[in-house]
Amino acid sequence: MKLDKDTCEWLGCPTPLEMYQHQCALLEDELTATQKRLIEARRNIAGLVQMCDLLSTGKATAEAELKKAIDNIARLNHETWELDGKVRALESVADQRDDLFRENQRLLLELSVLRGPQP
Rank of each mutant, 00 (worst) to 15 (best):
V49Q: 12
Q23L: 10
A33I: 02
E91M: 13
L55P: 01
S92L: 12
A74P: 04
W81N: 14
M19A: 01
D99P: 00
N72T: 12
L55S: 03
Q118P: 00
T61Y: 01
K86R: 15
F101A: 15
H22Q: 11
C52T: 11
E79W: 03
K68R: 09
R115I: 05
C13V: 14
A41V: 02
L109V: 03
A41N: 10
D6S: 12
A46G: 04
A94H: 04
L100H: 10
L48G: 00
D71G: 11
Q50S: 12
R75H: 14
E18W: 00
Q21R: 11
G116W: 03
E79Q: 13
Q118L: 08
K36M: 02
E63P: 00
P14V: 04
D84E: 13
F101L: 15
N72R: 11
K67N: 09
L90W: 08
A25I: 05
E28W: 03
G58V: 01
R37K: 12
E82I: 09
L111P: 00
H22V: 04
E79H: 10
A74N: 15
L26C: 06
E28C: 04
T61W: 02
K67I: 13
D84R: 08
Q105L: 14
T15A: 06
V93F: 06
A62V: 01
E30F: 03
D95L: 14
L55M: 07
N72D: 14
Q105A: 13
D99F: 04
V87Y: 04
M19F: 00
Q21G: 02
L55F: 04
L26Y: 05
L114I: 08
N72Y: 07
L109H: 13
A94N: 06
V49K: 11
I73E: 05
R102V: 10
Q23M: 08
L54K: 10
R75N: 15
N72E: 10
K36R: 11
R106H: 12
P16G: 02
L100R: 10
A62K: 00
L27K: 08
I73Y: 11
R43S: 15
G12D: 01
P14R: 03
E18D: 08
I45R: 15
R43D: 15
L55A: 09
Q50Y: 02
Q50L: 05
T57A: 07
N72G: 02
D6H: 06
P14I: 02
E63Q: 10
K67V: 06
I45Y: 11
E28R: 10
C8D: 08
L11M: 05
L111Y: 03
E79R: 05
W10Y: 06
I45G: 07
L114C: 08
K5N: 03
E65F: 08
L76W: 03
A25D: 07
L27V: 07
D71H: 11
A69H: 15
E9P: 00
D95N: 13
K67T: 14
T15Q: 10
E9Q: 05
D71E: 14
H78G: 14
S56T: 07
L76G: 00
L31H: 02
